[in-house]
Amino acid sequence: MSEISSLLQKDWTKTKTSAAAAIHAAVAYTDKKHYSLVDVMGFTGHAFRINIDPDHIDVAGPTMFPGGFLIRRNLCNLGFISSLSDTEKPYSPDKVEKVFAMIQQSIDRGRPAICFDLFIPEFGLIHGYDDEQHLFHAKDVSKEGTLSYSDFVEKRDMLWVTTISESLPHSKYETLRMALDMIVEHARGREWQHVFEGKYVIGLAGYDAWINCMQLRKADPFGNAYNTAVISDAREFAAQFLRELVVRWNGENVVERTVRRLAAEAAAHYAKTAAAWVEMRELFPFPNGGHPEEPAVADRTIALLQAAKEAEVHGVQVLEQLLDFMKGYWSETWIN
């Protein structure tokens, strides 16, 4: 009953995963504006992520991934060619010019640029420029406002910008297959982590890292609550995404039917995972964080994490099955 009521209350137009929120908001300016936030969370794999600092569940966890690699792959899944700047300080003048040109050209094509740490260290968008006042117009989850051209360059160690270029005519088969590939790769810890390798634990192993940290009573209350907020929200989206697949694939051929069957099976597992996370979210409200150091609370958390993981292990197995199956099919419509 509580699962149903939480589903009814959930606002599917808001997410704690700022990367997906920024991508969804940017995609709304393209021909693929029909993608809902649930679609974006699912097809980019963000609904299925868990990125954990094993030492104390640091608050930075959810965004500590190689952004250039991941966000562009996300955009590729959704059917876009993209461009990237990840030039690091100290910046050479020609690179600063190129980054500005990249942003301005994107805006001139009618698409905002996806950036990081505009007003807070989360993903956001630059949706305007003003050469007369030397200002960018930007928005992230914290606020909408302007930032001066020079502050934009000086006040960050990396000029991280991704822009959306051409839109590609991907079939729904390809989109789903690429999404599943990302989801499974992440869950199994095979995703490329670049400099975060060894520092952050991803996928199913993330649960073990978290459980271990809880056993040691080392979780930082703030980070613990934030990671819980992000992942609980993500898994709710994961279950919803899978449920929507069941409804949308029409069942008129073997592929359609298999997607429906396996997505429904996976959705049931992820719903259990989400339910455990939602209960954990009640233990650790963000931002004040609750008391993860209290033995009773920590032990309850460990039980919830184990339950969430167990269901997710099954979910991942089903998604792997679906991925294997999808690897054999490459058409948009199949009448048989």
Partner: peptide, 28 residues
């Protein structure tokens, strides 16, 4: 960096490129 930005903006102006372009506020 400031000199670079000033020069870049001036060049854009000289080439007659658009000075101000603000898209509709994003739904984020």
């Amino acid at each position: 960096i400031r000199v670079t930005i000033r020069q870049y903006v001036r060049q854009r102006a000289e080439m007659g490129q658009r000075r101000v372009h603000i898209l509709q506020s994003p739904q984020i």
